[in-house]
Nucleic acid binder design. Structure first.
Length: 511
RNA sequence: GGGGCGGUAGCCAAGUGGCUAAGGCAACGGAUUGCAAAUCCGUCACGCGCGGGUUCGACUCCCGCUCGCCCCUCCA
């Protein structure tokens, strides 16, 4: 079945065929580790995860690599030229504050003034969040998730190559710049070609910082700065690398080729980051192409608006999972959210459309996760838990595959699965096999046995269990006022109360 | 100003140049229930941002407009 993906490079849907049949080589821009990753970041990371899992679903072997940006870099807009405060210094301040408030546990970062400790702390948090949400590559750390600070040598090597090939120069300020005019394809990915950048009314280029550059769009490869908080020796002086160079280097180094198959990231990275990556890699390799397919996820809105710290809608993964979000009316939701629910919420709409993260949507996703989980439980009981092998002749699996192959149509795929999940398939073993295969992509039916995931509440929490028995007792006595009161108590603690033939069962709400 | 992406029912969200425009949630009616929940049955877009055009026929193709989002400065 041909796979079709939208390629930002051509602005068209294209049939995807890997350059090398044996392995798809894929690189995803990962997080900066100066702070907790937020759900918008994870929309992008989960999108990459879906690309990878889809490829695997169709039988490809995928080598997926992601970076961790732990080099400081600068915070303000002159930053392309390396001015402003270092992000690690800003992070150090924040960590000190967060330690006071308890957001960062005491002892988690022994010395906040050590940028490596800050970076490692946030890296660990990122990995934990990513694993919780089922981002596969996170389980391949450190093999396939690379730290920029551990690859400075490779960056210097590439900068040397660029200098030798005439794509870079050392400016009068000692900074090594990439010469965009030396690369004729600059602008191909984003449409921001040099003439357009110049003529754009909003394309203001500040005067002074540009003085050392040959062209205003030239960007920094190495900045000598012995005062920088993170610095390394180099032929161009002690300093630090530019932002874009790490991805060019690490993709090439770890994936082992000059031309990779797929490169993913958030839409904001199209320009300048990915444009510059292309210029660097192609400049160094002499190839016309860096990544054959560029795929980008659109931004995430929260309750219809841009995420904003002042509006309190700047949610981290842990904020959502631990119930620290607000409902549409601004009330604290207060209910813990199952990771599968957040995962589904962040993957369920098409990656090329804006996604609106809402509390209502989260509740909706919780219902879907619960239904799919219960469906699997039913199938397991019906077939003794032994799934049968099924192929694309299985109708639902065929529809699911068609949707995925059509530029990752997850919503369409769910549209096929959900009505099916209300049925009682004639061959439960085959159905279970199909569901398991689909879940290899979706990853939203909790991995623990379905029964445990849904019913853990009643068995694990003895207090809740006691209340359930009291409720049964009250009902047996026909003391309905008491029964209703007890039910209210259980519900208030975040459980759904159900009446079953075996008595009252409480299930923890998934969101 | 330039480069892109998107606008389908109360909400989320598929889809097609021509049968009755998927699916989910919510809502409503019914079964069930002490009442609920869960479950089951049923109802729920004569219309797909607006205006033109192409066509025998467009929500689907083209043009204009409008709204939203991203980028042109660090940003998933």
């Amino acid at each position: 079945m041909p796979l079709r993906f939208y390629n930002t490079l051509s602005n068209e849907l294209e049939t995807f065929v890997p350059a090398d049949d044996a392995t798809v080589r894929m690189y995803s821009c990962g997080p900066t580790v100066y702070d907790f990753a937020h759900i918008g970041n994870f929309r992008s990371f989960l999108f990459a995860d879906i690309v990878r899992r889809t490829l695997e679903f169709f039988g490809h072997n995928v080598h997926h690599v992601m970076n961790i940006t732990d080099v400081g870099h600068m915070t303000d807009d002159a930053g392309a030229d390396g001015a402003g405060e270092d992000k690690m210094q800003a992070a150090a301040r924040r960590v000190k504050e967060d330690k006071k408030s308890g957001r960062v546990p005491d002892g988690a970062v022994a010395d906040p003034d050590d940028p490596y400790q800050i970076a490692q702390y946030y890296t660990d948090c990122f990995l934990e969040d990513a694993r919780t949400l089922g981002v596969k590559v996170a389980f391949e750390y450190p093999d396939n998730i690379l730290h920029a600070t551990k690859n400075i040598d490779a960056m210097q090597e590439m900068i040397t190559q660029l200098l030798e090939r005439g794509h870079a120069y050392v400016g009068p300020d000692g900074v090594v710049y990439y010469s965009v005019e030396s690369f004729p394809h600059y602008g191909r990915l984003s449409g921001n070609t040099l003439d357009r950048l110049m003529s754009g009314a909003g394309g203001r280029v500040s005067e002074e910082n540009q003085a050392s550059k040959r062209h205003p769009a030239d960007f920094m490869l190495w900045k000598p700065d012995s005062t920088h908080i993170m610095k390394w020796d180099s032929p161009w002086g002690t300093g630090y690398p530019g932002w874009h160079i790490e991805c060019s280097c690490m993709a090439r180094k770890r994936l082992g080729t000059d031309v990779i198959d797929i490169h993913t990231g958030g839409e904001d990275l199209i320009f300048p980051h990915h444009e510059c990556e292309i210029a660097q890699t192609c400049g160094a390799t002499g190839e016309e192409t860096f990544a054959r397919f560029w795929m980008h996820a659109r931004f995430l809105l929260v309750e219809g608006e841009k995420m904003s710290k002042s509006k309190g809608s700047f949610y981290t993964v842990r904020d959502v999972l631990e119930g620290r979000i607000r409902t549409e009316s601004g009330q604290p939701a207060g209910v813990r959210v199952h990771p599968a629910v957040l995962r589904l919420e962040l993957i369920k709409s098409h990656y090329r459309g804006n996604m609106n993260f809402t509390h209502k949507g989260l509740m909706d996703s919780a219902g879907v996760v619960r239904r799919l989980t219960e469906f699997r439980t039913r199938l397991e009981h019906a077939c003794g838990g032994i799934a049968a092998e099924v192929d694309f002749d299985y109708p639902i699996l065929a529809r699911f595959a068609d949707c995925l192959a059509d530029d990752l149509n997850i919503a369409g795929a769910l549209g096929a699965i959900l009505p099916w999940a209300s049925t009682n398939p004639e061959d439960p073993a085959a159905a279970l096999g199909a569901l398991n295969r689909m879940n290899e992509v979706l990853g939203v039916v909790p991995l623990a046995t379905a029964a445990a995931a849904v019913e853990d509440a009643g068995s694990e929490n003895s207090e809740i269990e006691t209340l359930c028995r009291q409720l049964d007792e009250a009902r047996a006595q026909k003391d309905y006022a008491t029964a209703d009161a007890i039910r209210g108590q259980i519900q208030e603690r975040g459980y759904d109360v159900k009446t079953s033939p075996a008595g009252t069962v409480a299930e923890r709400r998934l969101a």
